[in-house]
Write a protein that binds this DNA or RNA. Structure first.
Lengths: 128, 128
DNA sequence: TTCGTCATGACAACGATTGTCAAATCAACG
DNA sequence: CGTTGATTTGACAATCGTTGTCATGACGAA
């Protein structure tokens, strides 16, 4: 029996930010936005909330080139991302043939418990 | 005019390790291996050597789930990797159709300066 | 060999993230 | 509603990979 997480002001605030944003953002960026809005939430709490959300698959997480983890509220189901390096704006993409290809490659080489990461980075038209 | 890097004992030692390994390894792992072999090289120097090699595209670098950067001496040209999560053993893979697909998606959405990351992780047969 | 420069290494500093723990807050229950 | 007890919070310290610093040492051209 898993405990339901409590419905706290802080967690609601983090979720609200994620709902407003349309792109990926780091924990620290989200923390800053909250501070700017006056709805201050401790940095540790932002990190913890995002972890909980990511574990529950309610948000997607990926690492940028600098090794920072970025979070985004995404639609359910497996998909990949086309992400603007500059503003974080994101387009969800699907690639069924890529999935099949990756699984086939792994299988041919005797690999088990296969997962793959696939992200496309670029500069979006607004940022160009 | 680019300065040619000096041919130092330390850089030779790092390259030698990379030549011996067939999989990805972190800077700290390489540092440990060097220490074990008695050919001690400062940790900073290991990091710097790997950076230089990565900038020169003589080694490939990728991040594992923990955010550590792993390095590997790879063949030239664009390719992806099937990496064992446990031992680092790596199979280089190519996916021309994936490349085209990624570029098309990015173009359709007006993204410029497009790059993509694609790695497949799994457990290899020896580690299963 | 000489000499200017680049590389090295011990160490400090950094930045993102995680751990700690007392105090505050939730929500169920009476 | 007030009590209650477990969960959550937040300020802060700690961690971990990595990068910066700078005096010392090693390369290699002349």
């Amino acid at each position: 029996m898993v405990e339901a997480p409590r419905n706290t002001r802080q967690r609601r605030a983090v979720v609200a930010i994620l709902e407003d944003l349309d792109g990926f953002a780091s924990a620290q960026e989200i923390h800053d936005i909250l501070k700017r809005r006056g709805e201050s939430v401790g940095l540790s709490t932002v990190y913890r909330s995002l972890q909980v959300l990511a574990d529950a698959a309610e948000v997607d997480a990926l690492r940028n080139d600098d090794g920072e983890v970025l979070y985004r509220q995404c639609s359910a189901g497996h998909h990949h991302h086309l992400v603007c390096r500059s503003c974080g704006r994101t387009v969800e993409i699907e690639g069924p043939s890529v999935e099949r290809w990756a699984d086939k490659i792994a299988d041919e080489n005797g690999f088990r418990d296969v997962a793959h990461t696939l992200e496309i980075f670029g500069t979006c038209s607004s940022c160009a």
